[in-house]
């Protein structure tokens, strides 16, 4: 039976701090071994998840959704109206999802100041910086400074919308379609869409990026 008591957990953390193995990899190994012995994990299922993250789960899913939105304005509108339903049409499940669109006059930036909430089903694992104190503390207060560090300079008139993911609603930014991509197919367009552009720490995607890679 779980005792939902903050002081008890804090005391257990202090005890664990001084008793667990000294290296993170060793702590993880001990946890896994113990859970296997207790019958609480099937190591083959852990292997299967590791495989899924390296093959199926990642930002290429979000990139494909963005590319489809660029090709199909009706789909983009459905994304903005009800993103969870729209991504389901494309075979993805993110039950509580909001899509926000960058335009010449609007820039969107996504953060989770309290932990690291992220649309994992569409973008995979968040980058480390998304989980660290510098980004989480500054995105809501110093968005221009944050963007500058990522090499993004916004024109004076551009409105900034910062989205703090404080509930089970996840966000995906639909970046602007780069110039010079008329007639490109979904795969070619998707190859231009970066993870950072879907978080909002990149703004101007370039048609040249695909040609260079």
């Amino acid at each position: 039976m779980t005792k939902h008591d903050s002081d008890t957990i804090a005391a257990i953390h202090r005890e664990l701090h001084s008793h667990l193995p000294s290296e993170p990899a060793l702590r993880a190994k001990a946890l896994e071994s113990l859970l296997v012995e207790k019958g609480m994990i099937d190591p083959a299922a852990v292997d299967a998840w590791v495989g899924a993250y390296s093959e199926d789960i990642g930002p290429k899913n979000g990139a494909r959704i963005v590319a489809r939105c660029w090709i199909d304005p009706d789909l983009k509108q459905r994304m903005l109206d009800d993103a969870a339903r729209a991504v389901k049409e494309l075979g993805y499940e993110q039950s509580h999802l909001i899509a926000v669109e960058n335009t010449p006059d609007v820039h969107n930036l996504v953060v989770c100041t309290l932990c690291s909430c992220y649309p994992t089903a569409l973008l995979g694992m968040p980058p480390n910086w998304y989980k660290m104190a510098a980004y989480r503390s500054r995105a809501v207060r110093d968005p221009l400074g944050v963007l500058a560090e990522f090499g993004v300079a916004l024109d004076e008139q551009v409105e900034i919308r910062v989205w703090d993911s404080t509930a089970e609603l996840r966000y995906i930014v639909i970046p602007q379609r780069p110039a010079g991509t008329d007639g490109w197919d979904e795969a070619a367009l998707a190859s231009l869409v970066t993870r950072n552009a879907m978080i909002g720490t990149e703004r101007d995607l370039s048609a040249r990026a695909a040609a260079d890679t």
Partner: peptide, 30 residues
């Protein structure tokens, strides 16, 4: 952390890999 100050610059040059160490992927799977 929202609005706290003094945490310095962001490590923006991170690679696109989802996990940087094998044990991290393992923990996610566990």
């Amino acid at each position: 952390l929202g609005g706290r100050q003094g945490f310095g610059e962001i490590d923006v040059d991170e690679s696109d890999e989802q996990f940087h160490e094998p044990w991290e992927a393992r923990v996610r799977g566990i």
